[in-house]
Each structure stands twice: as C-alpha cells, then as structure tokens.
Deep mutational scan, measured.
Amino acid sequence: NKFNKEMRNAYWEIALLPNLNNQQKRAFIRSLYDDPSQSANLLAEAKKLNDAQA
C-alpha cells in the first residue's frame, strides 16, 4: 500500500528531526495516523518547523 510506505517513511523522518521536541514529534505522528494520505504534507510542515527552530 502506497500510503503505508509513505507514512512509514514520514514517521521515521519526523522522529529523527533534531530540532523538534517530543511533543511536536508526537503531534505530527498522531496526524500521520489520523490521515496517512497527508504524509508528504505533514513531513514538509515538520521539516519547515525543524528548520525554523534550528
């Protein structure tokens, strides 16, 4: 399933972002599970926040 693969990839990328705190990571990951079709958008948002907090 395409969404499962995208979701799994996004999950690990988000989990490993160095500048997000655990609460932020959990919120993004919860959103991934709520709507796997938004994986790419959620990952992009997480990366933006990660960069902003660098």
Rank of each mutant, 00 (worst) to 15 (best):
N1R: 04
N1M: 02
N1P: 15
N1E: 11
N1T: 03
N1G: 09
N1D: 14
K2A: 13
K2Y: 04
K2V: 03
K2F: 13
K2Q: 14
K2P: 08
K2R: 08
K2E: 15
F3R: 15
F3S: 15
F3A: 15
F3E: 15
F3K: 15
N4M: 03
N4G: 12
N4R: 02
N4W: 14
N4E: 15
N4S: 03
K5D: 14
K5A: 03
K5Q: 07
K5I: 02
K5Y: 02
K5M: 01
K5V: 03
E6L: 05
E6I: 06
E6R: 01
E6F: 02
E6M: 07
E6C: 12
M7W: 14
M7P: 00
M7V: 09
M7Y: 04
R8P: 01
R8H: 10
R8M: 15
R8A: 14
R8T: 10
R8L: 15
N9A: 14
N9R: 15
N9C: 12
N9H: 15
N9E: 14
N9L: 15
N9I: 15
N9D: 08
N9P: 02
A10W: 02
A10F: 05
A10Y: 02
A10R: 03
A10L: 06
A10G: 02
A10S: 04
A10M: 04
Y11S: 07
Y11D: 01
Y11M: 15
Y11I: 14
Y11F: 14
Y11C: 13
Y11R: 12
Y11W: 06
Y11A: 12
W12N: 13
W12L: 12
W12Q: 09
W12H: 12
W12V: 07
E13T: 09
E13S: 09
E13V: 12
E13A: 14
E13G: 14
E13W: 10
I14M: 05
I14N: 00
I14C: 01
I14A: 00
I14F: 02
I14R: 00
I14S: 00
I14E: 00
A15C: 11
A15H: 15
L16N: 13
L16G: 12
L16K: 14
L17S: 14
L17D: 01
L17R: 01
L17F: 09
L17H: 10
L17Q: 04
L17E: 01
P18Q: 05
P18M: 04
P18R: 08
P18S: 05
N19E: 05
N19G: 05
N19H: 08
L20A: 00
L20C: 01
L20E: 00
L20F: 01
L20Q: 00
N21H: 10
N21R: 09
N21D: 13
N21F: 05
N21S: 04
N21Q: 11
N21W: 06
N21A: 07
N22Q: 11
N22R: 10
N22G: 10
N22C: 09
N22F: 15
N22S: 15
N22D: 05
N22H: 14
Q23I: 13
Q23H: 12
Q23P: 09
Q23C: 13
Q23R: 07
Q23D: 10
Q23W: 10
Q24C: 05
Q24M: 04
Q24V: 05
Q24E: 08
Q24R: 04
Q24I: 08
Q24G: 01
K25G: 00
K25T: 02
K25Y: 03
K25H: 01
K25E: 01
R26L: 13
R26S: 15
R26V: 09
R26H: 13
R26M: 07
R26I: 14
R26K: 09
R26C: 14
R26Q: 10
R26F: 09
A27I: 07
A27H: 06
A27F: 12
A27S: 09
F28Y: 15
F28C: 05
F28P: 00
F28E: 00
F28L: 14
F28Q: 02
F28D: 00
I29N: 02
I29K: 05
I29M: 05
I29Q: 14
I29Y: 06
I29E: 03
R30M: 14
R30G: 11
R30S: 09
R30F: 13
R30I: 11
R30V: 14
S31M: 08
S31V: 13
S31D: 12
S31L: 09
S31G: 06
S31Q: 10
L32Q: 01
L32N: 00
L32T: 01
Y33N: 02
Y33S: 04
Y33V: 13
Y33D: 01
Y33T: 07
Y33G: 04
Y33H: 06
Y33P: 01
D34W: 04
D34Q: 06
D34C: 11
D34R: 08
D34H: 04
D34F: 07
D35C: 07
D35L: 04
D35G: 02
D35Q: 05
D35M: 06
D35W: 04
D35E: 05
D35Y: 04
P36G: 05
P36D: 02
P36W: 05
P36N: 03
P36F: 09
P36I: 08
S37Q: 13
S37Y: 12
S37R: 06
S37E: 07
Q38W: 09
Q38H: 09
Q38K: 10
Q38T: 06
Q38P: 02
Q38L: 14
Q38I: 06
Q38F: 07
S39D: 02
S39W: 08
S39E: 01
S39A: 14
A40S: 10
A40R: 13
A40G: 13
A40D: 07
A40E: 07
A40V: 11
A40K: 12
A40H: 12
N41W: 09
N41K: 12
N41A: 08
N41H: 13
N41Y: 14
N41V: 08
N41M: 11
N41E: 09
L42C: 04
L42T: 08
L42G: 02
L42W: 07
L42Q: 05
L42F: 05
L42R: 06
L42S: 12
L42V: 14
L42P: 01
L43R: 15
L43Y: 03
L43F: 02
L43P: 01
L43T: 13
L43C: 14
L43I: 09
A44T: 08
A44D: 13
A44R: 07
A44F: 09
A44S: 10
E45W: 14
E45Q: 11
E45H: 08
E45V: 12
E45C: 11
E45I: 07
E45A: 05
A46Q: 00
A46L: 01
A46I: 02
A46Y: 03
A46D: 00
K47R: 14
K47P: 00
K47T: 04
K47V: 05
K47H: 07
K48Y: 10
K48I: 14
K48D: 09
K48T: 09
K48H: 11
K48G: 11
K48L: 10
L49K: 10
L49G: 02
L49R: 05
N50G: 03
N50L: 01
N50H: 03
N50Y: 01
N50A: 07
N50Q: 06
N50T: 01
D51C: 12
D51H: 10
D51N: 13
D51S: 07
D51A: 13
D51M: 09
D51G: 08
D51W: 11
D51L: 09
A52F: 10
A52M: 13
A52T: 08
A52P: 03
A52L: 08
A52N: 12
A52I: 10
A52K: 11
A52Y: 10
Q53C: 06
Q53E: 07
Q53S: 11
Q53G: 04
Q53T: 09
Q53Y: 06
Q53K: 12
A54E: 10
A54Y: 07
A54T: 13
A54L: 09
A54K: 08
A54F: 06
